[in-house]
Design a protein around this nucleic acid. Structure first.
Length: 422
DNA sequence: CACCGTCAAGTCGCA
DNA sequence: TGCGACTTGACGGTG
């Protein structure tokens, strides 16, 4: 099925690298000292995620705008580009040698076609800040910065004209990375293609936005994608698209918890596999869905077994039947079917947790500590386990405690288990 | 320690 | 007219 060496990526957050939370602060208590500490932490978080990506053969990743708190604002007076230059250089090298493609995505406040001059000015500052990130971390023109067109203000033609005017005034360093994306409310693929035809900026196609805010309905999907593909030039690198699926329970446009792999498979076969493209996934479970899609496109039994090991206790904490079913599946089977594996995983993870199953999984986990934990830790563990059974503490508390033991004794197998991820 | 309202920014749509 | 949703999680004050 794989035809074009498609790279799969995910955005900003990673559920399974530690530490993994970006720090920020309230505007009232900004100090340079605070900014220094937060940025130092955030760079470490970013580096952990880059390391994770390299270890897991992930070649595409969106850098979070949260890396530098108030990064585009005059309120941030710290000379962070200079202070952390060595760190940026080190991470840039990792990205380069890992053959990774990074991107960034200024948020909904970046509106360069606003009628308000102040808003346009702040938006340009935001683009300059994101361009700083691109330069500090890649410097490669095929690493992209994705922007939406902006507001409509009751007159789309005039608003598109304003976008084009401001685009012409952007600095060359910003234009080097900038690409535009169709959104789920105002600017359709047709609108974005029109702007592209005027200023020759590449277009990112977002499938879910297109479903919600359609255009060019007289064309086949393949004709639309062909038009999009043509907006990219050689030096922009491979065409990039955004792929997401609707969360069935939530409002229109809400990203699903995880990728429905069978559905992805169908979309990929019918459309995306026909083009040389890279696909950025927008999905809540981030790196885990990256792994699913990666395994679908590049089946590898060894990697699948490692993945099964990561899910094992989480599955056990939901359903013994599923656990046994999966265990049987891997037994004496040198080629487990990826779609089948994940269909069981996904169905199991949707089940409501039961205390009994959780306690059972925790008892299995305890096996790793049996010989190494202190008497005191043993007491604590079983006391908490009883409290969990009695409904006196929450499962998250118990899991955090167990994770801290795994960290203390450096039990790699458990640290890589999704059951103990926070 | 757990909980939960709130957080720099813009725009749109709906009650 | 004012509020919630979008991106998203984390801050930070309170009980």
């Amino acid at each position: 099925m794989k035809k074009h060496d498609t790279k799969i990526g995910y955005a900003c957050m990673n559920m399974d690298s530690y530490p993994a939370s970006f720090q920020t602060c309230r505007i009232q208590n900004i100090t340079e000292e605070k900014l220094y500490e937060m940025i130092e932490n955030n760079i470490l978080v970013l580096e952990n995620m880059i390391d994770y990506n390299i270890k897991h053969n992930n070649y595409m990743y969106r850098i979070s705008s949260s890396l530098i708190p108030f990064g585009s604002s005059p309120l941030n007076t710290l000379d962070w580009k200079h202070i952390f230059r060595d760190d940026f250089k080190r991470i840039k090298n990792k990205i380069k040698h890992g053959n990774m493609r990074v991107s960034c995505h200024p948020g909904q406040y970046t509106v360069i076609n606003s009628p308000s001059e102040d808003v346009v000015e702040a938006s340009i500052m935001e683009l300059e800040y994101h361009t700083d990130l691109m330069e500090l971390l890649s410097g490669n023109k095929n690493h992209k910065m994705i922007l939406h067109v902006g507001g409509v203000y009751g007159d789309k033609d005039a608003s598109i004209d304003r976008f084009i005017d401001v685009y012409h005034k952007l600095s060359p360093r910003v234009k080097k990375y900038l690409v535009i994306e169709n959104d789920d409310r105002s600017y359709t693929v047709e609108d974005v293609l029109y702007i592209s035809s005027q200023v020759s900026v590449p277009v990112i196609f977002d499938n879910l936005h297109h479903d919600i805010n359609p255009s060019l309905q007289n064309l086949h999907m393949q004709e639309i994608i062909t038009k999009v593909v043509k907006t990219w030039r050689e030096e922009d690198g491979k065409v990039k698209m955004h792929y997401s699926q609707q969360d069935p329970g939530k409002r229109k446009g809400a990203h699903s918890e995880t990728i429905d792999l069978a559905l992805f498979c169908e979309d990929y076969k019918n459309i995306y596999s026909l083009y040389p493209i890279d696909i950025m996934l927008e999905v809540k479970d981030k790196n885990r869905s990256f792994k699913k899609v990666d395994l679908l496109l590049n089946p590898n039994q060894r990697t699948l077994e490692v993945e099964w090991a990561s899910y094992k206790y989480l599955v056990m904490s939901k359903s013994i039947a599923s656990y046994n079913q999966l265990r049987e599946m891997f037994k004496n089977n040198p080629k487990v079917d990826v779609l089948e594996f994940y269909s069981i995983i996904d169905a199991t993870l949707k089940l409501d947790p039961s205390i009994g199953n959780q306690v059972n999984a925790l008892e299995h986990v305890w096996g790793y500590f049996k010989k190494i934990a202190t008497e005191k830790e043993k007491m604590q563990f079983f006391k908490k386990l009883q409290a969990l059974k009695d409904g006196k503490i929450k499962d998250t508390h118990m899991i955090k405690f167990t994770r801290s033991l795994a960290e203390k004794y450096e039990v790699t197998y458990l640290l890589e288990s999704y059951f103990l991820s926070i």
